[in-house]
Design a protein around this nucleic acid. Structure first.
Lengths: 233, 233
DNA sequence: AGTGGAAAAGTGGTCAAGCCAATTTTTATT
DNA sequence: AATAAAAATTGGCTTGACCACTTTTCCACT
């Protein structure tokens, strides 16, 4: 384990160290539940200073890879055992993301339709109008799309859910891997998406939770289909 | 800003510092886009060492609150502007967390009931048995409770959703405020929770999505009621 | 007066060494 | 053999130093 960290990389050292340790865990050198070498020893083995290693361990602790016990040591979490789903499917995919959005945003919009305020509707109206203008000018209304969805989430009156929707939209539920930014709409399809937004808006305006949910589900399903068609090319 | 960190807390210092900085950001002392004081200065102001502050900044960088630029400074990310719901309701509460769990876990268990595997059922069965044993010995089966819920989430076959449920369970969707670790069950009520888990299990075993969802909703609602009763005392 | 380049200052990045608190292991005592 | 105390080990935090990068200031030139 004399693998010194090359200083040629632009990435911060702690990130490199953390990645290296993750690799060692993944490779089975430190199985779940195992205790890592002591900080002083591990730092020496990796050829870095102890504070730098500690920074890396913070990152690993935050992402749940390790558990640090003072006076005792650093343990690989039993995470494989704590996330039984990892025994099954392989990583996330845009389809999973979409399914998750359908599940969450479907539930969220039920709440939102029941509680939506005049200001909320007004805000959505404005967002839609701005989207229309952007599309007419040939631009991609990404931020407005986001704003539309997050405004609805906000109208649920539940900030935890709103937070989740925001994270979903920003694809922050990819543990590490999905740095790919998935864009479901393409330049040609924003018009369709806008029409679907309008249908969602109408259902919210009518304060019809089930219709709103159906419209949201339809929108997300169409969006997924459009993406799949786009990917197939 | 002479707010020294009290050393009396069992939490790690970096977490305390990170939380404090998050509070300052949330309070508007460092608005989005603002540059924090230099590390040396900020450490002094907070009454901690610079390496400890750096550890906290790692955590903040990872959760997206700040961006660290070498030679330039530490900047608050433009994140607050991207969350319109913050103009509305005020902070989270355990009730909101519970509502969010009902929404998400309700959706998740629909998927899980349709796809549950024999191994999944076996794992749930084991978890329930272990919970029973722990309760019989007067212990609080917190980890097992978590495992039960996360196993179900895993059986949804959607790792994004599973991840969300895990985050919800670990209360990672509280931006700042909910450092209160909410424990919905009390020593006396684990027996009830276990019975509710059994009902959920039975519905999953019967592969009845709507029944499973109803059982999950009932469980979470009862759990909430028990917590509220507990809080009222 | 304006501009460009170099130097200085400021900032984060990393390291070394030391001491303290918590846990584990070893040793001594009963 | 069991228990308590001591020693060793381990992580937690601090101080201080030097290096790499960025920004600001200063000076020379046009």
């Amino acid at each position: 384990m004399n693998e010194s960290i090359k200083a040629a990389e632009p990435r911060r050292l702690y990130q490199q160290i953390a990645d290296q340790i993750r690799s060692l865990i993944q490779a089975g050198q430190f199985p779940a539940g195992a205790r890592l070498p002591a900080e002083r020893e591990l730092a020496q083995q990796l050829g870095v200073s102890r504070p730098s290693l500690r920074e890396a361990l913070i990152a690993l602790e935050i992402d749940g890879s390790v558990e640090i016990r003072m006076g005792s040591g650093i343990y690989v979490t039993a995470e494989p055992d704590r996330r039984p789903w990892q025994t099954g499917s392989m990583g996330e995919s845009p389809l999973e993301l979409m399914q998750a959005r359908a599940a969450v945003e479907g539930a969220v919009i039920l709440l939102a339709a029941a509680k939506i305020t005049p200001d909320g509707l007004k805000s959505l109206r404005q967002t839609l109008d701005q989207m229309r203008a952007e599309i007419a000018e040939g631009r991609k209304p990404l931020d407005l799309d986001r704003l539309f969805h997050l405004t609805i989430a906000g109208q649920s009156g539940n900030s935890v859910l709103a937070h989740i929707v925001g994270d979903l939209f920003d694809e922050r539920h990819s543990p590490l891997s999905a740095q790919i930014r998935v864009r479901f709409e393409s330049p040609e399809t924003w018009g369709f998406a806008l029409a679907e937004h309008e249908a969602i808006y109408a259902a919210l305006e009518a304060r019809n939770p089930l219709l709103a949910q159906a419209m949201m589900h339809a929108h997300l399903e169409e969006s997924k289909q459009r993406w799949m068609n786009n990917e197939a090319r």
